[in-house]
Amino acid sequence: MDIASLLNCLADPGCMAGQIISGIIIAMVLFLVASGLSLILGVLGLLNFAHGSLYMIGAYFTYTVMASIGNFGVALILAPIGVGICGVILERFFIKRVYGLDALYQLLMTYAFILIFDDVVKFIWGIFDLSIRMPSLFRRPPVTAIGTIVPFYYLFLIVVGVLLVVAIWLFLSKTKYGKIINAAASDPEMLMCLGINVPFVYTIVFGLGSLLAGVGGALACPLRAITPGMGFAVIIESFVIVVIGGMGSILGTFVVALMFGLMRSFGILGFPFFELAFIYVFMAVVLIVRPAGLFGKVRI
């Protein structure tokens, strides 16, 4: 334990701001992945372990677009759309067959797709670690604020993350389509009686969740090596966030992703040997006290 480090940092606005930014950055990419997972879990009731692989495919698509066009903005649009289409195909041909089945069947099928996707990326892109350069727009001196520095790309990540939270929330709560998705989550039979094509809604939701994973993968590209199996690194943490936040709650996912990021960035200061343990202890407590998650009752 290094409590002195933690206290010193809390007393120093520059240090505290730096760690807060670090925590928010961890939270943003995780939120994008976890929000798609939460949507799929909340509406479709599907334990999608292959969600991390969709994030990985987003990163590989981004790499390909960058390698051929060299424009990160275009990659940021095309790669998630590509992942969304992959998600739609996956749902139409395979996933829809395990709706309503025991969680074990869902787990087996989605786990199988983790292995399949890993082999597919090895086949297409090879086994070597790939990476992309920081887009030229963001290769500029970091911004200095409150005694700390904030890299320009991190500011962009924060803005994109917040915009997406607002956009998803507006879409789900204020639009007709969002209301249909909400209805599909709570009473699909009734929705079907009203003439809505529920299987189609499910496909769209799965595609949307996949697209969000793709956004996460695309945004992570300039910061991480692109490797087969990179989805493993985010899927467990995303599940933890969704479980604590409340399955299907986008607000819960966002708040808990932020908590997760901050607990990690400050935990590293004070408890570098076991900072990860905190979040799991927290999850255990939440599951005992509030099994539906912190925002479990908040409808998406």
């Binding site: 290094d2 480090s5 940092c9 120093d12 520059g14 240090c15 730096g18 760690q19 930014i21 670090s22 925590g23 950055i25 961890i26 990419v29 700390t148 991190y154 992570a220 991480r224 199996g229 990179m230 493993f232 690194a233 985010v234 990690r264 960035s265 590293i268 200061l269 570098p272 040997f273 990860l276």
Partner: peptide, 21 residues
Amino acid sequence: MELWPKLWEPDFTPYVTKMLG
């Protein structure tokens, strides 16, 4: 300090800011 990110850690930013701080 001794820092211990898990294997395949995707986020190194808090470690970097801690070292620089």
